[in-house]
Amino acid sequence: MLQTKDLTFQYPGGSRFSFPDLKVGAQESMLLLGRSGIGKTTLLHLLGGLMNPTSGTIVIDGGDISKKSGRELDTFRGKHIGIIFQQNHFIASLNVLENILLAQTLIGSQPDAGRAKNLLERLGIGTKVYQNVSTLSQGEKQRVAIARAVINKPGLILADEPTSALDDQNCIAVYKLLEEQAREEGSALVIVTHDTRLKSEVNHQITLQ
């Protein structure tokens, strides 16, 4: 689960952002809406533990990441936060399965190939396990990215504009897929987007002002 309080971020010599308090329980979804430049990416990086807030707290799975830094934060991020980017990148020298298992070995867990294959099966790309990621379509890549984000059963899954490039039909399908995976793994799901088509799908919404 995720809970933030009085979150602010000040870019050095630049703009200052204040964010509303967020609370998302396990197996719940939330939509973070807002136009460009309002601080969506900044909030995503704060929630993802990719940078520390200037003030305020971010509690994920009971741990306050606003107080963590360095190696401690790196490990926490790997274990408790799964991020799906708009542009999904992979390690080019590894195949689909190895890319997913890397998320486990990097936090020092035993790689669980059975679970990874199950996830890929569940996501409908069970036949692509040993392929090079570069041979996959955009849609397939996104599914691999989802599998990689949930493999460690994180408390929080963050998705950055997962649907903006898709048509209406696929937009809803991808959302359903994300929501389903988050529920299966018991994670909180936060979707950061400006895609208004999702408004009708997700009850819990916050629009950044």
Binding site: G78, L106, I107
Partner: peptide, 15 residues
């Protein structure tokens, strides 16, 4: 991007 990704997935700078 790969390097940034490794950081996202929990690797430290030292890693």
């Amino acid at each position: 991007y790969e390097l940034a990704l490794l950081r996202v997935m929990g690797s430290s700078r030292a890693g």
